[in-house]
């Protein structure tokens, strides 16, 4: 890291992470203080050196010391004015880089925390791949923002449906909504490309990968490795029916 502006940015980040680590270490030490140190647990009287608190205490104190050293180094390198500037709350930008990061983090989080627990795994994966691939593989800047909106809309819709609709109809409803979201994502992106008179080759490739990947992965894991998938709904149910019909 030879560029002085990069070094300065790193030290600014160090100041924040150092402070964050101090809080983390204090929290860790606070929780560790509740562990048995010399009192008894499970009928066994403790001595300090057998205590389950021993290593966490050592770790907490070490992190606290090192975080302190990191903060000190950052403060020394930044100077008093630099420290004041750093500690002012950063302006949250919403540039293309932030949008890309938001789309990546948002789609991974939505996939894992919203779709996978309640939606058929094949459908959830198809939507995740469609949003992800269309977002980064098509007309770049515009496609990231467009697919970020598709992601937010589909996540909210499916999330609300999963919590509102009754148990007996929930599977069908959330699967139908997710399937519709895949179709909507494909249609919206195709329309956007057509408006800009861009070729549809990349869109076609993206759609093929988004649809084929779950159709290959699900049977591989379910029938090949005998791994039951996180949530088996409409599509995986159809795969089961097909398998039993063919290999009965």
């Amino acid at each position: 890291m030879s560029d002085p502006s990069d070094t300065r940015k790193l030290r600014q980040a160090d100041l924040w992470t150092g402070l964050g680590l101090v809080v983390f270490a204090l929290g860790m030490l606070g929780v560790t203080a509740t562990f048995p140190i010399t009192d008894s647990y499970g009928g066994v009287r403790n001595v300090w050196y057998v205590s389950p608190a021993l290593l966490p205490l050592l770790i907490g104190v070490s992190i606290l010391l090192m975080a302190g050293m990191l903060v000190r180094k950052a403060m020394r390198d930044l100077g008093p004015e630099g420290v004041r500037q750093t500690l002012r709350l950063p302006q949250a930008g919403f540039g293309s880089r932030t949008q890309r990061l938001l789309l990546i983090l948002g789609s991974v989080c939505a996939y894992v925390y919203v779709f996978i627990p309640v939606v058929d795994f094949a459908l959830a994966t198809a939507l995740f791949l469609a949003v992800f691939i269309f977002g980064f593989h098509l007309d770049r800047e515009a496609s990231v923002a467009r697919n970020l909106l598709i992601l937010i809309a589909s996540t909210v819709t499916v999330g609300v449906a999963a919590s509102v609709v009754g148990q007996e109809a929930r599977d069908a409803v959330v699967d139908a909504l997710t399937g519709s979201a895949v179709i909507a994502a494909a249609a919206i992106n195709a329309r956007a490309l057509a408006r800009q008179q861009l070729p549809l080759v990349a869109w076609r490739k993206g759609l093929i990968v988004a649809v084929l990947t779950p159709l290959l992965l699900c049977p591989l894991f379910k029938y090949g490795l005998l791994v039951p998938l996180p949530y088996e709904g409409t599509v995986i149910g159809a795969m089961d029916a097909l398998r039993y019909a063919v290999f009965r």
Partner: peptide, 16 residues
């Protein structure tokens, strides 16, 4: 942009 999302899916199913 095509293979990284597939890798993400593989990581998710792999962890599970």
């Amino acid at each position: 942009a095509i293979f990284m999302p597939v890798v993400a899916v593989m990581s998710v199913i792999g962890s599970y």
